[in-house]
Amino acid sequence: MNRAHTHTPDHGAQHGRHQEHDADGQAELLDLDAEVFAEHIASIAAWLPLTTSPRRIVDLGCGTGAGTFTLLDRFPDAHVTAVDTSAGHLQHLHAKACARGLEGQVRTVQADLDDPAWPDLGSPDLVWASASLHHMAHPERALRNVHGALAPGGLLAVVELAGFPRFLPEGAPEEQPGLEERCHAVTDRLHAEHLPHRGADWGPMLTAAGFTVEGERAVSVNIEGSRSEAIGRYALGGLQRIRSAAAGWLSAEDLTALDRLLDTGDPRSLLHRDDLVMRTERTVWAARRT
């Protein structure tokens, strides 16, 4: 599985020195993601149709732990098995668990969830899969594996996103209106080649895997940058990664305008704008093993 979680424009598998350096940057972006979406992640966890507090939880494609720590905040007596393909992300998550005094409640497992031989995840009461399933080449098999691992009556929570958030107002930047959407159009085309399940309706796949879908919820996110200083840094990190992927397909004028937004020393950069609004949507499915 090519990393989970979360909401970065490129979740590619990490191999070699360049990718390990890239993973460091991705970990920082994932931490920012957890910070700016904290309220919304908590609301999703509170919405889940749980009849009792889960004691054994699996965070499938955990990244640096946004879901892991949200769930432990809500269910402080639980134990979480955090699974990801990135050793660096798991080390980062473990360090955070130790800093919070939770190392005894968090177990990390490095695994490729596209591998037919799955790791032993025990018999969890709750499996949380946030922005991870669409990275898998064989998500149908993964869902069957989750169904087989869950305790009878256990719940799977699937959280998927429409895409990386938008930040700029309509008509911005002034010299190249529509730049952000053109950047996303390029990365959407690239993702369509490598991530065919991005934006999928997971309901039918969950049913086919043996689950009973008990709830589906669309969550709209709209946060003004004035509410969180982290939004500017999150926009900066995300658009930096988008530039790396999209540079070859953008016009010279678009690249110049994008570089100005990314230049933290420029008064017109993202970090100096007071009109950023983070906008995106997520969909949540709650599916039970009956």
Rank of each mutant, 00 (worst) to 15 (best):
T280M: 10
H272Y: 07
G225Y: 14
H18M: 12
L250Y: 04
T256N: 05
R243F: 12
L121E: 00
E170I: 06
L258M: 07
G101M: 09
M1Y: 04
D115V: 00
A38L: 05
T256E: 13
M1K: 00
S43L: 14
A157Q: 04
D73A: 14
T64F: 03
Q105R: 15
D77M: 08
R141N: 09
G232H: 15
A218F: 05
D22I: 10
L50M: 12
Y234G: 03
R241V: 11
L32V: 00
A45C: 12
L32W: 01
A185W: 04
A131H: 11
N2S: 11
R100I: 01
S244D: 15
Q240A: 13
A247D: 14
L72R: 06
A172G: 09
T290R: 14
A4S: 10
D188W: 01
G163D: 05
A46Y: 01
H18V: 13
H40G: 05
P204S: 09
D77T: 14
L270W: 15
R100L: 12
H147F: 15
P9R: 04
A111K: 12
D263V: 12
E103W: 01
D112M: 05
P196Q: 03
L113A: 06
P169D: 11
E170D: 15
T207R: 15
L102K: 01
L93Y: 11
E103C: 02
L179E: 06
E181G: 11
D275T: 09
R273T: 08
T187D: 08
G154P: 03
V80L: 03
G153E: 13
D31V: 05
A23H: 01
A162G: 08
G232M: 03
A287E: 02
D266M: 13
P124C: 10
A27H: 10
L250D: 13
A287S: 02
L93T: 05
H197T: 02
N2G: 08
E170G: 07
F37M: 14
R288C: 08
L102C: 02
T280Y: 06
T64P: 08
T212P: 00
G237P: 07
L206M: 06
N2R: 13
R289M: 10
V106H: 01
H79I: 13
L168R: 04
T64R: 02
W128Y: 11
V158E: 00
T207W: 03
P9C: 09
R260T: 15
S86Q: 06
L93H: 05
F37D: 00
E35K: 07
I231D: 07
G248A: 06
V186K: 01
T68W: 01
R189P: 00
W118P: 05
A38D: 03
H18W: 12
P165R: 13
A257L: 06
E281L: 05
A157P: 08
A247F: 01
P139V: 11
A252C: 06
A208W: 10
P165W: 12
G163C: 07
D59M: 13
R166Q: 10
V219Q: 08
A257R: 00
S244G: 14
G178A: 11
P169F: 00
K96E: 12
G210N: 07
P124Q: 03
E174T: 14
P169C: 08
Q14I: 15
D73M: 04
G104L: 09
F37P: 01
T187C: 00
L258Q: 04
W285V: 04
D33Y: 13
L236Q: 15
